[in-house]
Design a protein around this nucleic acid. Sequence first.
DNA 1: TATTGTTATACTCTATAACTATA
DNA 2: TATAGTTATAGAGTATAACAATA
Lengths: 162, 162
Amino acid sequence: MAQPAQNAEHPVDLGLALSLLLRSYLHASQAVLAELPGGPRGYHVLARAAYECPPTQLALAHQLGIDRTVLTYLLDDLEQAGLIERKADPADRRARRVVVTEAGTATLHRLQGELGSVENVALRGLDPAEQQTLRTLLQRAAGHQDSGEGACSVVNAVVSTI
Amino acid sequence: MAQPAQNAEHPVDLGLALSLLLRSYLHASQAVLAELPGGPRGYHVLARAAYECPPTQLALAHQLGIDRTVLTYLLDDLEQAGLIERKADPADRRARRVVVTEAGTATLHRLQGELGSVENVALRGLDPAEQQTLRTLLQRAAGHQDSGEGACSVVNAVVSTI
DNA sequence: TATTGTTATACTCTATAACTATA
DNA sequence: TATAGTTATAGAGTATAACAATA
C-alpha cells in the first residue's frame, strides 16, 4: 500500500479544529488554573464578573453558557476561597449579584498575565500577525452567539462529549 | 448604578472564545449528527478514517485526542451500524485498521454537505472572507497540536468541564 | 517484556426535578 | 403565577486498572 501524503494539514471540519485547539489550550492552561477553584470555568466566572457591573447569577450563567445549578457550586467554591461574594440585589431581593473581591481581582490579573504565555503555546503554529487575526475573529464570532436561552441544557449534554 | 457599555465585544480570553464557539457549533450540528452513532465524535472517526490509509485504532485515537478505551465503544456502534469495519493488519496481527464501508462513505459525504450550512450558522458574525480566514487559521493552529502522546488522559479530564 | 485492543469498576460531571424565597 | 437561587437524585461519560492476544 503506497504511502499517502502526510504533510497536508488536517482536512478537518470546523468542529474538529475547534475541539483540538480547545483541548490543546486547556492542556496548556492546566498548570496555571489548577490552583483556582473550578479551574477554567472558575476563571471565566471571575473574568466575566469583574468585567462590568456585577451580574446576577442567572445572567452570568447565560453569558458562560452553563446551567444555573452548576454555577451555584462554582460560586460556592469561589466564595469559600474569598475570590467572590454574593451580594443581595437591592432592586430584586430574589437575585444575587456576583461581586469580585480585592483578592479575586488580584488573582484574576495575575492569571490573565500567565495565560498570555499559554495562548502563545496553543497558537504556536501561527506567526504573531496571524495569531492576532485569529484572536480577533474568534472573539467576534463567539460574541455573536446567543449563549443563553433554554438551549443551554441541550447543548451542554453535547459539549461534554467532544 | 449607571448602565455600563454593553455593546463592546466580549473581552474574553482565547479559552472562553473557543468554548463558546464550539458550544454554538455543536448545538447547530446537533440535528445533523443526531442520527450518527457517537454524534460529533462518530463523525470525526468517519472523517479521519476515510481521509487516508485506514489507520489503526491507536493512531485514530491519538489523532482525535480521545482515549483508546473510548474509541472501542465508538467503533462498536459504528460497526454495528455498518459504517466501518475492523480489518486485521496483515503486518501486525495485534492491530486493527478502521476501514470505512461504502455505506459509511456515502453517509460521510452527505453529512459533510449538511455540515457546511451548519458552519455558516456558527460563523454568522463574520463576513465570507473572514469566515474563510478563520477556517484556515483554525486548521493550521489545530494541525500543529500534538494531539497524541500520553497527554490525552490528562487533558480529557479537563475537556469535559469547559 | 512491551504493545494493541477489550472489558469492568469507580468516579466525576451533568440533567432533571423538587424546594424556598421573593416578585 | 412566575422567577432567582439552592439542593438532591439519577443518569451519562470518563479514567483507571485489569485482561487476552500478539510482537
